[in-house]
Design a binder for these strands. Structure first.
Lengths: 110, 110
DNA sequence: TAAATATATCAATTAATCATGATATATGGA
DNA sequence: TCCATATATCATGATTAATTGATATATTTA
């Protein structure tokens, strides 16, 4: 994860539909979701959804896998990890009390 | 942290100078940095830096504090925490092995 | 192989964002 | 109060991004 990758990722997440899509896929985890399923759930037209998924793919935030006629999308937790690592690099100037709560927050109860 | 806040934050982080600024401030931690100091370090003109700091402020990703003629900026770790919490909400569909590495990554060594 | 379904690409219009020069505001010191 | 320093705001031109209708590609089924 270099700076350019990080910029691409943040840009991808800074659009309403794409943020919704990514959060849906985070929730879905290893199950993933079909492209059409996502579009239907979010009430977004087919070509708009395709374009937005392409942006997320390009950013590496999601992966996909063809299954017959359909394509299943997954959140890419490795990219997520790299992105947060990049953002928090050498964080908090030696005071763990600043960054520890940030870490605790995403310690999900799954 | 609602969706609109998250979008504003990601948009703020999706621009080169602002990403640099935020990462500098993350490293600086509680020390923070003066506006002019940041601009000098990143070689960015005064008004451009001011505009970019305003975007980060508006997103709540940084706070500031006037000190005489100068203004000191700080990364806001609470906002950061809220943002990551929002993004990873109900994450990984019941498989902790997916999201645990994400958490470990940002467990900084400070 | 033809039709149906699922998804992607293209071209064009509209909208948002960025850096910049010029200028304004605020604070401190002479 | 006048000047210098530090930062913010404004107006503008240039670049970039988003949605959409139309169309293309890929896969399955008949």
């Amino acid at each position: 994860m270099d700076k350019s990758d990080a910029l691409t990722s943040f840009a991808a997440l800074s659009q309403s539909t794409r943020l919704d899509v990514f959060r849906l896929l985070v929730k879905a985890g290893a199950r993933g979701m079909l492209s059409g399923e996502i579009g239907e759930k979010l009430d977004v037209r087919q070509n708009t959804m395709s374009a937005n998924l392409a942006v997320l793919l390009n950013a590496g935030l999601v992966r996909n896998e063809r299954q017959g006629r359909t394509i299943r999308y997954f959140a890419d937790f490795d990219t997520m990890r790299g992105l947060l690592g990049f953002l928090m690099e050498d964080c908090c100037g030696g005071r763990p009390d600043l960054c520890q709560p940030v870490i605790d927050e995403i310690a999900c109860a799954c």
